[in-house]
Computed example of a mutant assay.
Amino acid sequence: MAQHLHPLPPERFLWEERLPGGCHWSGVMRRGSALRLTDLDGRANVAALFFNADEKLERYNMADTLKAQHTAYLTAGHVCYSDMGRVLCSIVRDTSGWHDTVCGVADAALVRAKYGVATYQTHRNAMHRNGRDGLLIELGKWGLGKRDLVPNVNFFSRVMADEEGRLTFDLGHGKAGACVDLRFEMNVLVVLSAAPHPLDPRPDYAPGDVMLTAWRADPPGPDDRCRNHCPESQRGFYLTEILFR
């Protein structure tokens, strides 16, 4: 367990796994569990999708998540809403401070144009992977496909807009050891890709590794920061909790 980063109570620890830069992962996080994403070297980007594990037609909705919380990015205190108005997960801790919600993922053509060709046949595990294909591979393991590839969150990436709406990737935002803690309010299928952000201007293909650390979380009480962030969050928690009564 990555105790040197941000200690967790040993009795609550569930599991830990390192996600290499460029690779992808998926798994079910149960209601009442939490998952910490840690940027190990300051170059991580984690594209994430969330689905109700018990009914996968219900999934993360970017537009409702931003509109309900009057924000364009995610950080501590925010929640990720499903398209049914329920809370999939809450951001209970965040040392990064800003996570992109609007830029999506790079596809094979973009990665090839930016970084050149590096296939498994020539580079083995150092091959150039892209976020779109990584997410699709993981979705396929759960009976999902292209139509389920909805707008995602890009954890650890900050994108700024100028007065004319042009987007710029913030190269100074990434910090080694930055982490974000997600508490799951439903049984959630989590799908991740650690491939580079589509707007990352760096010429070298060197996406950062991410540590995934899971544990049993405290349940959200009446004074919970995420629950009380705004009236819509209170409603989202109520709609979620009646599923489990």
Rank of each mutant, 00 (worst) to 15 (best):
A2Y: 06
A2R: 05
L5W: 05
P7K: 02
E11F: 08
F13D: 03
W15G: 00
E17H: 11
L19H: 07
H24V: 12
G27F: 10
G27R: 13
M29D: 07
M29I: 11
R30Q: 13
R31K: 15
R31S: 14
G32V: 08
R36M: 04
D39H: 12
D41L: 08
G42S: 05
G42R: 03
G42T: 06
G42W: 02
N45Y: 05
V46R: 02
A47W: 00
L49M: 06
L49A: 03
D54H: 11
A63D: 08
K67D: 11
A68I: 02
A68W: 06
Q69P: 05
T71A: 05
A72Y: 14
L74V: 13
G77E: 03
M84A: 15
R86I: 02
L88N: 03
S90K: 05
D94V: 09
S96V: 12
S96P: 02
W98E: 03
D100E: 12
D100R: 08
G104P: 05
A106W: 00
D107H: 09
A108Y: 05
A108E: 14
A109W: 07
L110G: 03
V111Q: 04
V111W: 01
K114R: 15
V117W: 15
A118R: 14
T119H: 10
H123M: 13
N125G: 09
R129M: 14
D133M: 04
L135M: 10
L135Q: 02
I137A: 12
L139K: 02
K141R: 14
K141S: 08
G143R: 04
G145N: 09
K146W: 14
P151C: 13
P151M: 12
F155A: 08
D162K: 04
T168Y: 13
F169H: 09
H173N: 12
K175F: 12
A176R: 12
G177Y: 13
V180Q: 13
D181Q: 08
L182C: 08
M186F: 04
A194D: 11
P198S: 03
D200E: 14
P203Q: 07
A206L: 11
L212A: 07
A217K: 00
A217T: 05
D224V: 00
H229W: 14
Q234W: 04
T240H: 05
L243P: 00
L243Q: 13
F244N: 14
R245A: 08
